[in-house]
Design a binder for these strands. Structure first.
Lengths: 238, 238
DNA sequence: CTCAACAGGTACGTTTCCGTACTGAAATTT
DNA sequence: AAATTTCAGTACGGAAACGTACCTGTTGAG
């Protein structure tokens, strides 16, 4: 539970944007949680019990089909909230959501969030903008998946993760990067070597550190950036 | 403009689901329109002036980035409505939307739709479910783009188009199919030959006819079907 | 009727990425 | 400390799709 005066310490962009009068709907119902890597947030087909406002860490949203093909369609960090379907009135999870990079956050029960959105136009508007931003992110994942090279997609992913972490270290194995991008593990290894050779990252077993972010942005080109700019427009802009 | 008694002739699933009391918000403001192929519905970065409830035809929603990479992320037909961002409180178009297969429908001005959604919980709920369904479609486009072979993606596209047309004929050139799938025109030609050889489709210049839908479904496998089933659950189901 | 534009068939070398698999090094467990 | 598991490096043949280009038949415009 968080009192109004405790909001100063909050990093989550959505919680930050909640107005004082709306805070009573949300704040008192938040439960601080530690989120370990690989921790499951949502399971496809199962009800969504809580929405998670992340502070630190990165959650992966993964689309799965009946033959178990899977690929990451989006990531969520301190800029957003999990449980996007709740915002649209659906309590069933469609995607698999889990922590890709461990961290922490605050969670709120599904009924409380839905009730709050129903009662406050301000909250609904805020969360809808967040949902819209996430939808744009998914669209651009579709674009990158269809058009970009492995190297560019990897760069895009690293940038999105970097945006959402506090350090330059990305604690992930090649294996998990491969699963998210929907490519071979060996392919990721080779691509990372390329990044290392160019001085963009350094690596240790199970970890990768971003050294030259600008260089990575150049690799990603315009496959990175649009969803980020649009989210900013939606949340900050007029 | 459509009077309440005229709804019987309507094919659009969303208009159909509008309750009698909510109809006054929408029906009187509908303008019947013919929609020719290639007709532009939304331009990225520009305001969305109208939402289009399609009766016949297929609209393509195409993601574009700063370097003009583009790929279709979703299609809309009689089951839905264009202008999904409006439902989420954004009046700016993010994607390029245009008619891929000509047809007809009814359009409603942006302000009227937004106002109606603000006033009626029933309408908001309905349109939000539609938006949620569309989001699932985009996710699965991302999945197919990342994981499926050209042949499977083509099959998926044909099935989605077929779902939304009244005849088995799909009036499209290889060139446009290629643009939507984000592949070479020549690649589409070869894939279609494969379909022809298997007796799944027949072709004429600028047109393709679906002969064996079940066969095409087998090619697409589980890359097709999930969004369709989920939309049904959202709109029909409990 | 002629001509230009368009749709589609085909080809070829090349790039990208896959499937698979073996290896050694690092970390974790016993 | 030894055994086991996990992670990363590397290799190789092959599939898929690309970029490009050329050619032919159809269609629509003048």
């Amino acid at each position: 539970m968080l009192e109004a005066h405790a909001r100063a310490g909050i990093r989550n962009r959505l919680l930050h944007k909640i107005s004082l009068e709306d805070w009573d709907y949300i704040g008192p119902h938040l439960e601080a949680v530690t989120l370990k890597e690989r921790q499951v947030i949502e399971v496809p087909g199962k009800p969504i019990t809580h929405a998670y406002f992340l502070e630190i860490g990165v959650a992966s949203v993964v689309a799965v089909d009946a033959e178990d093909h899977r690929i990451e369609v989006g990531v969520i960090g301190y800029e957003g909230v999990t449980g996007v379907p709740l915002i649209l009135g659906d309590t069933r999870a469609q995607h698999s959501t889990y922590m890709q990079i461990g961290g922490s956050g605050h969670r709120i029960p599904q009924e409380v969030l839905c009730g709050a959105i129903a009662k406050s136009d301000g909250l609904r508007s805020l969360f809808q903008k967040s949902a819209q931003g996430f939808m744009i992110q998914i669209s651009h994942t579709a674009l990158a998946n269809g058009r970009a090279k492995l190297e560019q997609r990897l760069a895009r992913w690293l940038l999105m993760a970097h945006d959402r972490t506090t350090s330059d270290a990305v604690p992930l194995t090649h294996e998990f990067l491969a699963v998210m991008l929907g490519v071979r593990r060996a392919g990721v290894t080779v691509a990372i070597h390329g990044f290392e050779r160019k001085g963009l990252v350094t690596t240790r077993r199970g970890q990768l550190t971003i050294v030259n972010r600008t260089g990575i942005e150049q690799v990603a080109g315009s496959f990175y950036g649009t969803p980020e700019a649009e989210l900013k427009r939606l949340l900050e802009g007029k």
